[in-house]
Design a protein around this nucleic acid. Structure first.
Lengths: 160, 160
DNA sequence: ATTTCTGCAAACGATTTGCACAGGG
DNA sequence: CCCTGTGCAAATCGTTTGCAGAAAT
């Protein structure tokens, strides 16, 4: 976890009068020790690797705090559970493409899209606060060659 | 409900060997009798207005069929429950702006955005199948004048 | 000492499912 | 008749919450 992130979080907690506990520390440390997406439960596992007394409830109570700090992003990609994305600071405007074939999530950024979204919102009389674009798509390579290097998946015969 | 939609659904059910029942009829009739978004539970209420024996289970079992037919769109706007949008046929590429102040959902379309999304997906080696853009935003009018004329109005905006 | 935090377990709410019966073809 | 469709109620699953004790300030 970067020192800058650690400091920002520390400041945020202090500004809200929130206390420093070993459980929160462990959750925070775990939350920013990767650049991959994770679920609340996966974060629980990671945090328990640092501090074994962390409970699921505390993870669920801490996540909204981190999201509120602006350093962690909450994603709902429509899979029945939320994902958390610590990659938010470095890439604040990234979008997500979900492969229908292998379920992998790919991040991408595009300045034009970002501008266009802001433009649309303003035109309607709003100031955008949070945007999420989700594209579900099929892998071309899998369809054309039968194999996808990204996933190692092989296409079923006859699949379109 | 438009006759064209009714016919398309009828054909779809027949092509899948699905039977015609009074409950399904009522659900289908209800599903396409409005152009507003609704939840599964709201659809249950509407369908019961037509055929009182409709159960929640049947609604939940019928919804995926309608979505599969391509005439009804499933939305997950990150509110913990799914929304269904019968407006899909007329406006296949619309996006959603959710007002943080009044929670109203506004639909809008933009050709450039549509093109850009397709372009991004193809550049990454994918063929897009389903796209969903969600913008959460604050109402400028409410912020500036303290009142929003839209609040209390129809949620389906005429924005283009 | 005061107040926030915590773990536990129960509660929650949308959705799914097993079952035995109803009803469409 | 056969087999799909149905209602009911119980099960699921991620997430939230009430409570009493633990810990931070």
């Amino acid at each position: 976890m970067e020192e800058a992130v650690r400091n920002q979080i520390r400041e945020f907690l202090a500004s809200k009068g929130l206390r420093k506990t070993s459980q929160r520390d462990a959750i925070i440390e775990a939350a920013f020790s990767t650049d991959r997406h994770y679920t609340a439960d996966e974060l629980l596992d990671m945090a328990r690797g640092i501090e074994s007394t962390v409970s699921r409830a505390t993870v669920y109570r801490t996540l909204p705090i981190l999201v509120g700090s602006g350093l962690l992003r909450e994603l709902d990609l429509g899979q029945g559970r939320k994902l958390y994305d610590p990659n938010f600071v470095d890439h604040p405007h990234h979008n997500h493409l979900i492969c229908i074939d292998c379920q992998q999530i790919f991040e991408f950024e595009d300045l034009n899209m970002e501008l266009l979204e802001n433009c649309m919102a303003r035109r309607m009389g709003f100031t955008p606060a949070n945007k999420q674009l989700r594209i579900e798509a099929r892998c071309d390579e899998l369809r054309l060659s039968g194999v996808c290097r990204r996933s190692g998946l092989e296409a079923l015969a006859g699949a379109v």
